[in-house]
Write a protein that binds this DNA or RNA. Structure first.
Length: 465
RNA sequence: GGCGGCUUAGCCAAGUGGUAAGGCGGAGGUCUGCAAAACCUCUAUUCUCCGGUUCGAAUCCGGAAGCCGCCUCCA
C-alpha cells in the first residue's frame, strides 16, 4: 500500500511522492527557546519523530530541518528581566530542549538552524521581497504586502476581508498599509534594548515568519516535500511563510502540509492557572518514565486531540513493559519446532503495522497490530517454544517496529554488578528454603525500581518502567 | 461574531455504510515456594441525544447539547 498523508492544504488524503525519488526533505517547526518546552510542544516533536522514523523505515533518506527560534518578543523580554544577554538566556533552554529530546528518544534532525545565526540570509530574503514589490519599508520596519499575493489564505481557508482593523494589532505597527500585512523586519524600538542588528534594512531584528522561509530555503531548497507544525501554526505562521517563499520564488513552496492537533490534560486545556501545565522535567521528577510520556504522546493519532491523563500515563508504562517483556520472552524461549503459526503471525503483523502507518500514520492501529503480534507469538512460545529461525524472524519484526516506536530497544543504565551478587545470594537463600531472606532481597530491589523474576532459565532482572 | 474539530466500555483509544481493533483496569482459571511474566476464558446488543436516508449507520444527512481549537508572532 502506498503512503498517504492528510494535507492541510487540500484537506484530504494524498498519496505521498517526494520531489526527488528516495529522498524526503522536510521542515519541522521547532521551539521558541524562551522557557522549557511543555508536553504539548513535545506532542509535535514526537509526531515529527514518528514521521521521520517511518519515512526511514520505508527506505527513504530523510533530510529534516528544525528551527530554533531564539529571537522574539518573549526571549527579549525574559532575558532583559533576567539581566543577561539574549544568547545566555536562550542557550539554557536550547540545552534543556536537547536534553528532553534525548530523554524522549527523539531522533536528531539533520539541521537545527538558529534564527540569530541566519540574519544575513533573512536580510537577503527580505531585500528580494522588496525588489519584487511584495514588501515595503515603513517607519523603520518592513512589511509584507498581502494584497500582492492573491493566494493568501489558501492554507488556512480564511477570508482575510473579515479581519477587523485595529484588533490585536501591536501599537508599534501603525505604519502598516493594511492591518493584515505582517512584519518581516522589525525596526529597533526602545524595548528591544541591545538586541538588534545593523543591516542594509536598518537597525532592527527579523520578524518571526521570515526565519522559516529563509532557513528552509537555505537547507532544503526553494521547494521541498513536507512541512509540519501544530495546528496553531496554520494561521498565521505557515500562511505567511507561503506568501514569503512563493513571493520570492514564484514556485510552489511545499507539497505536503501536516499539522498535529493539540493535547488537553485531564480533559482540560493545559494552562498554568489550571495547574496542569507540565514539562518533561516536572513529570520525570514526579517519578514518571520519559519513555512512557513518549508512548502516551504517540499512541493517539496525530490529528486527534489527545487527552493526557495520569491514568493513561500509568497504562502507557504497562504497555511498554508488555512489549519489553515480550522481547525477553522470545529471546529466552525454549527451543521448539518450526511453527507455521509463528511465520504467519510475523507476516500478518508486518502487513498490519505498515498498512496502518501508511494510512496517514495511524499509530493506534499500528500498535494494535503490534499487540496482536505479541499475544499470538507469546501463545506459540508458551505452547511449544520457538525454533531458531522463528525466533530470529520474530525479533527482526519487533526490532523493525521499534525503529518507529522507539520504546523497546532503549539504552538504559548497564548491568549492575551489585544486582547480580544479590540475585546470587537470593538464589542460595531459596535453595536453603529461606524464603524470608529471598523475599527481602527481592522487595528491597523493587524499592529501587528493579524487578526480579524467576524463570525456567534462571532469575532475570529488569528496570521498572 | 466568523471558521474548524471532537463526543465510542471504569480510563486511554482505533474504526467513517455491512453488523464494535488494541492498551490499561476488573473477574475467574493454568503455572509458581510465594510472586512476576506468560497463556486461556469473561468484561460496550452498542457508539452524547433526537429525527431522517438505507435492506443495513458508530459510520451519510438534519437538529440539539457538551467539550476543544483558530481568527496576526501559542505545538
Amino acid at each position: 500500500m502506498a503512503l498517504r498523508f492528510y494535507n492541510t492544504m487540500s484537506r484530504r488524503l494524498e498519496e505521498f511522492e517526494p520531489i526527488e525519488p528516495g529522498h524526503v526533505r522536510m521542515y519541522t517547526c521547532g521551539p521558541t527557546v524562551y522557557g522549557p518546552a511543555h508536553i504539548g510542544n513535545f506532542r509535535a516533536y514526537i509526531f515529527e519523530d514518528i514521521l521521520r522514523r517511518y519515512l526511514k523505515y520505508k527506505g527513504y533518506r530523510v533530510t529534516q530541518v528544525m528551527n530554533l527560534t531564539d529571537i522574539d518578543d518573549k526571549t527579549i523580554r525574559d532575558s532583559q528581566e533576567a539581566g543577561i544577554t539574549l544568547q545566555e538566556h536562550t542557550r539554557k533552554f536550547i540545552e534543556m530542549f536537547f536534553h528532553d529530546l534525548d530523554r524522549l528518544n527523539i531522533e536528531r534532525a539533520e539541521y537545527y538552524p538558529a534564527a540569530t545565526e541566519h540574519i544575513p540570509e533573512m536580510v537577503d530574503f527580505i531585500q528580494k521581497l522588496i525588489e519584487r514589490g511584495n514588501a515595503y519599508g515603513s517607519g523603520g520596519s518592513v512589511y509584507y504586502k498581502i494584497s500582492t499575493f492573491p493566494r493568501y489564505g489558501a492554507l488556512s481557508h480564511m477570508d482575510m476581508t473579515g479581519l477587523k482593523a485595529g484588533a490585536r494589532v501591536d501599537s508599534d505597527e501603525y505604519e502598516k498599509e493594511s492591518v493584515s500585512d505582517f512584519a518581516v523586519w522589525k525596526g529597533w524600538s526602545e524595548r528591544d534594548g541591545n538586541v538588534f542588528w545593523n543591516t542594509p534594512l536598518g537597525k532592527g531584528r527579523p520578524g518571526w515568519h521570515i526565519e522559516c522561509s529563509a532557513m528552509s530555503m537555505k537547507y532544503l531548497g526553494e521547494q521541498f516535500d513536507i512541512h509540519t507544525g501544530g495546528v496553531d501554526n496554520i494561521f498565521p505562521h505557515h500562511e505567511n511563510e507561503i506568501a514569503q517563499s512563493e513571493g520570492v520564488t514564484g514556485k510552489k513552496f511545499v507539497n505536503y502540509w501536516l499539522h498535529n492537533a493539540h493535547l488537553i490534560v485531564e480533559s482540560k486545556k493545559m494552562s498554568k492557572s489550571e495547574g496542569n501545565f507540565y514539562t518533561v522535567g516536572a513529570l520525570v521528577e514526579m517519578g514518571h518514565n520519559p519513555i512512557a510520556i513518549r508512548y502516551l504522546l504517540m499512541a493517539t493519532h496525530y490529528r486527534q486531540q489527545l487527552n493526557f491523563t495520569s491514568e493513561a500515563l500509568e497504562a502507557s508504562k504497562k504497555a511498554i513493559t508488555r512489549l519489553r517483556d515480550f522481547r525477553t520472552n522470545v529471546e529466552d524461549a525454549r527451543p521448539g519446532p518450526d511453527s507455521d503459526t509463528a511465520k504467519w503471525t510475523v507476516a500478518r503483523a508486518v502487513e498490519g503495522f505498515e498498512a496502518a502507518l501508511d494510512d496517514d500514520l495511524n499509530m493506534s492501529q499500528a500498535l494494535a497490530a503490534a499487540f496482536d503480534f505479541v499475544r499470538e507469538v507469546n501463545a506459540v512460545v508458551a505452547e511449544q517454544g520457538l525454533s531458531e529461525a522463528d525466533k530470529k524472524a520474530v525479533l527482526n519484526a519487533l526490532r523493525r517496529f521499534d525503529s518507529v516506536l522507539g520504546v523497546v530497544y532503549v539504552k538504559e543504565a548497564g548491568i549492575d554488578q551489585r544486582i547480580d551478587t544479590l540475585i546470587r545470594e537470593r538464589n542460595e537463600a531459596k535453595k536453603a528454603r529461606d524464603f524470608k531472606t529471598a523475599d527481602k532481597i527481592r522487595s528491597d530491589l523493587l524499592d529501587e525500581g528493579i524487578i526480579l523474576e524467576d524463570t525456567p532459565v534462571g532469575t532475570k532482572w529488569k528496570r521498572k518502567v
